[in-house]
Each structure stands twice: as structure tokens, then as C-alpha cells.
Design a protein around this nucleic acid. Structure first.
Lengths: 226, 226
DNA sequence: GGCTAAACGGTCGACCTCTTCCGTTTGTGC
DNA sequence: GCACAAACGGAAGAGGTCGACCGTTTAGCC
């Protein structure tokens, strides 16, 4: 009796709610995802899976039946929010003012990170087994690059800005998140404000070499800050 | 046969090389500290203690005899580098140019973080059981505040800069560190450059409220980024 | 060189997390 | 309502780390 997820792991590794499944299964799946989001938002993605199952009111086996691996659960839990990010980039590309668009995207993503440490961690994690996540991320990244180029062309963004600086910001922003959501928000806002001020074009001292950071090849976010 | 460390845990929880101990003990202690520094620098403070003991060529029991708890080892391993930071602040206070002093301190600490993720993690960890670490940190913080004030007074630093922004920088910098030291260094330098540019006084848009961050009340740096 | 206590190292138990097994329950179509 | 397969949950196994015990070794001193 192979279940759906192990039968076709390639087509929907963390994918959509399967159509042919029983009502209780669909229901449990939804509650697991919600429990995961809640727990991750509160305490980060380090939360033990058993706690997620307990919070959802199901057994551990049920969790693993729906999400064969830890990463599958995490990427499924945050796929919606990842989609939001991509949508934000699309919206920004439609803005008449490239700088405003860019600034809005950065602000929005930083806010989402500060609101939900779990999302922040998921956002910066590679998920080598979730090709759809990787694909979406790659799409978002190439569009961001286009947005950056436009902002440079209009002279609103410094010429030595590099697309990798966006990743740099998101990593830095993840680093300033605290246990308390309020503290996270305050720190995030302040950091972003500093960053945005430096993004304006200037004939002042040039920046050092860009860091070799692409959202694509970020390693997994490790157990400790160290 | 109580050993030294458990006999007086309050006076030197992670303290200096005891004078009255045997040569082999002193030797092993030093090798443990070196092994810890090496391992932590490479892989962060998440490295299992058994690996440290193996690297030092001693048994696990020896490690625990010298350092009763995990945190004791970590704080002892990095106390020297913490001292370097305090010294850097002192030196900066002696600089004729407050801005140059401040910039040098920030550059130096960021560089140390990028060179050694273990130090970076230790630097941002509370260590409630290591009063000497806390004391030194508090001292450094108050001196930094003085330095900030001087730089503001000379008009070299924006008036709405807050001392907590230094903590913010160190946290952010910790967040951009990667597995590869070269990548960490590049990212750190770039981040610092952005930050420093925004620190100059400007009559431009003001910053949002400072984040409630003091080096003192940072929570422990958790196992995962999430 | 020999004695004594300090120091050592292998081993063992406790704890925690991830993952799987298997007997039982429950939803669904006839 | 009945039968069957899907889905469930409790419990157990595997892996790994922390920290302690205890018999053995070795440094320091006479």
C-alpha cells in the first residue's frame, strides 16, 4: 500500500493537496501545515517534528506519511509565502518607478522575514529536494536582476550595486531577528533603512567587491548561529 | 577528590590556567582550548564536544573535567578574542579622530567575526554562567557608547545613530557569514561598507526607531538560523 | 626509586529527535 | 449497512550528544 507521496516523489515532492485522497487525510494535511507554520513562526524551523504533530493533534506517523522528510514539510508549509514573494517582484516590475518597486519588494520581504522566523529560515534554505521551490526562486532572482538594472538605468540606484546585495540584505536581516516579533520588526526596519540609504547613487567611496551570494546556492541554514 | 573547577565554580567558571595544577593537566587544557577554537572556527559552535576531545587527543572525561559544561568551554575558548575586542575599543577611544576610531573598531570586529564563525557566535551569546564575560562585554559597551557620543559631537556621525545600531551591525554581519571563509569575508566587507556609508550625518530621511538591542541582553544564539 | 594523589580515558546510562512498523480505526462506494 | 482499502496512532528502533563513573596511569615530591 504505497501512499501517494512515495509513489511519485518527483512530480509533487511537497506539492498541492492531492485530489483523490480521503477527506480526513486532506483535513489532517491542512492542520499539519497550519501547525507547522505556527510553530515555525514562533520558534524557528528547529522545532521538533513531534511537536508539530502534537500541535496538529495527529500522530507522528501521520506527519511522516504526508511529508516524508523534514524539508518536505518545511517547504510545503512556506510555499504559499514564497509565492507571495515572487508576486511582489512581479508587481514591482510593473511599477513605473523602478526604485520604488525595488524598495517595495525589499521592504515587503524583510517584513515577512521579521514576522515569521520560520519563513525567513525557509526562504534562505536551499531545499535541494524541492525542484519547484528552486525554480520559483530562480525566477524571482532573474526578475530582481532586471529590476535592479532598470533602477540603475534611471539613475536612482548606485551603479556598483550588485544583485547579490539583495541576498546580502536578506541574510543580514535574518541575522537581526530576535525571539520577540516586536524586537525583530524594529531591528529589521532599522537595518533596512540603513541599507536603503546607502543604495542611492553617490560619487562617494566605492563599495568593495560584491559577495558571491546567489539565492540559489545558499547552503542550508544550520542548527546554530555559529 | 574534588577537582579545582568544581571546588570553586563561582570564582573562575571558565577562568585562567590554574597555577597549582599538574603539568599534563595544564597541557591538556591548552590543547583542548586550541582544538575548540579550531573546530569552532571551521564549523561553528555546534560541533559536538566529543569531536573537540578527539581533536585534542584526550578522552571525553578530560574535557568535562576541565570544562564542566559546554558553555564553559566556549566562553573560555574565546575569552582571549573577547579581550581583543575590548582592547580595540580602548584603542579607538585614544584616537584623535572619533569617527576613525569607531570605524576601525567596527571593521576589526566584523573581520574577526568573518574569520571565525565560532567567535562570532560566542560574541553574540549571553553566557549567563560566565560573569567575567558579561562584565567585559558591559565594559566594552559603555565605552562604545562614549565613542559614539564623541563622533556625534564632532559632526562625523549622524545624530540619530544609536548605540544599539552597533549590535545591529554585528548581528547582521553574523547573519551573512557563509561556510567558506572567503565568502564570509567578502560578504562582511560589503555589508560593512554599506553600513558605514549610511552612518555619515545627513539631512536626508530619518531612521526608524532604534531596535531594543543591547549586547548584554542578547539571547543565546540558537542552533538554527530559524 | 617509590609513594600518593591528581589526572586520565574507555565505557555506560539518560535524553532527545527522526523515522518506521503494525495492529486498529474510519471514510467511501456499492 | 457492508466490505475494503485508505488512513490513523501508539510504540519501538536507530542514531547521536551530553555528561558521569571508575579502574588505571602518571606526574610531583621525598
Amino acid at each position: 500500500m504505497p501512499d501517494r507521496l512515495s509513489r511519485n516523489p518527483s512530480t509533487s515532492p511537497a506539492g498541492a493537496p492531492a485530489p483523490g485522497q480521503r477527506a480526513d487525510a486532506r483535513n489532517n494535511r491542512a492542520r499539519l501545515l497550519q501547525a507547522a507554520r505556527d510553530a515555525y513562526a514562533l520558534d524557528g524551523t528547529g522545532v521538533p517534528s513531534s511537536a508539530i504533530a502534537r500541535r496538529a493533534g495527529v500522530g507522528a506517523a501521520t506527519l511522516y506519511r504526508h511529508f516524508p522528510t523534514r524539508d518536505a514539510l518545511i517547504s510545503a508549509a512556506f510555499s504559499e509565502q514564497l509565492g507571495q514573494c515572487v508576486a511582489a517582484v512581479d508587481e514591482a516590475l510593473n511599477d513605473d518607478d523602478p526604485w520604488r518597486g525595488l524598495r517595495t519588494v525589499l521592504t515587503e520581504v524583510c517584513r515577512m522575514q521579521a514576522e515569521d522566523r520560520g519563513f525567513s529560515a525557509a526562504f534562505l534554505t536551499a531545499f535541494p529536494d524541492a525542484p519547484d521551490v528552486q525554480r520559483e526562486r530562480a525566477r524571482a532572482e532573474s526578475r530582481l536582476a532586471r529590476l535592479v538594472q532598470r533602477a540603475k538605468d534611471t539613475g536612482q540606484l548606485r551603479k556598483d550595486f550588485d544583485s547579490s546585495d539583495i541576498t546580502l540584505l536578506f541574510l543580514a536581516n535574518n541575522g537581526v531577528l530576535r525571539d520577540s516579533p516586536a524586537a525583530s520588526m524594529a531591528a529589521s526596519r532599522r537595518l533596512l533603512a540603513y541599507f536603503l540609504q546607502s543604495c542611492r547613487p553617490t560619487d562617494d567611496t566605492p563599495l568593495p567587491e560584491p559577495a558571491p551570494l546567489r539565492l540559489d546556492d545558499l547552503y542550508r541554514a544550520p542548527r546554530r548561529t555559529g
